[in-house]
């Protein structure tokens, strides 16, 4: 889909860098200049710079900036501890909290004209999903050793090979369904917004969709992280 105006792409174009006009670029430099890459870097820079600015001086009585981060991080920690238990939540916290903050900002950024959501590209969401998928299997092997296969065989020994095949297929479906849902929701929001903006932007037609977009952004970020946490939790608990 052709986005109306993407200011980073315009700036890069002016600088003489090759910004691809097709979904994927041909050369390495073109691939690095794709909008979803540049906007990912924008989100990353935002996530690095803003906490640095607001938390450079930690105080015992927090100011407004530090307070915001304390509430966010504390809330996330409670949320993970509820699903995983204290110890495991501490272990997984850096990864999952990064996913949450990255996804929510990447989703939200698409609501501003001139920006796009990096999560409206399947490459980004599939990349994150592969990370989650590999992590939950690694955790399973770490907690159960080679007995991890018992998670896949079910209770009856006779049915075990058959059940194993079924579980492997259903497990691979996680990979697609997790990435497709985030991608689909955010892409739908982006397309709807740009179409409404082009049709009747002067009459504030995108306004209701913008309000819904805020809701979708938050829900999708929470659901992605929640499912990632649930997958990790189910890989770490004992086979039933």
């Amino acid at each position: 889909m052709e986005h109306p105006i993407l200011f980073i792409s315009l700036i890069l174009d002016k600088l003489g860098l090759p910004v691809p006009h097709t979904p994927t670029g041909a050369t390495m430099l073109e691939k690095l200049c794709e909008p979803y890459m540049t906007y990912t870097w924008l989100v990353m820079a935002f996530l690095i710079i803003v906490p640095k600015l607001t938390m450079s001086r930690m105080e015992l009585v927090p100011g407004s900036g530090q307070n915001f981060w304390e509430v966010t991080i504390g809330g996330l920690m409670d949320f993970f501890a509820e699903n995983l238990g204290k110890e495991r939540a501490k272990m997984l916290f850096p990864m999952m909290a990064t996913f949450f903050l990255y996804i929510i900002i990447a989703n939200m950024i698409g609501l501003i004209p001139g920006f796009m959501s990096p999560t409206s590209n399947l490459n980004i969401t599939l990349g994150m999903t592969i990370m989650v998928w590999v992590t939950h299997h690694v955790l399973g092997f770490r907690y159960h050793g080679l007995n991890y296969y018992k998670h896949f065989t079910g209770p009856m020994p006779i049915m075990a090979p058959f059940m194993f095949l079924l579980e492997v297929i259903a497990n691979c479906a996680r990979l697609i369904s997790l990435s497709m849902r985030l991608f689909g929701n955010i892409l739908a929001k982006e397309i709807l917004l740009s179409v409404l903006f082009m049709l009747a932007g002067a009459y504030f037609a995108p306004l209701p969709i913008l309000c819904l977009g805020v809701l979708v952004c938050i829900i999708q970020a929470v659901v992605f992280v929640l499912l990632a946490v649930l997958y990790c939790a189910s890989a770490m608990e004992e086979a039933h």
Partner: peptide, 25 residues
């Protein structure tokens, strides 16, 4: 609402998992 949200997330996955497992097979 927390348990509701957790269940909502896992049950919203059911339909898509169903479809994608057929296609993966």
């Amino acid at each position: 609402s927390k348990t509701m949200f957790r269940e909502l997330a896992s049950y919203s996955q059911v339909g898509m998992t169903f479809v994608f497992s057929i296609f993966i097979g």
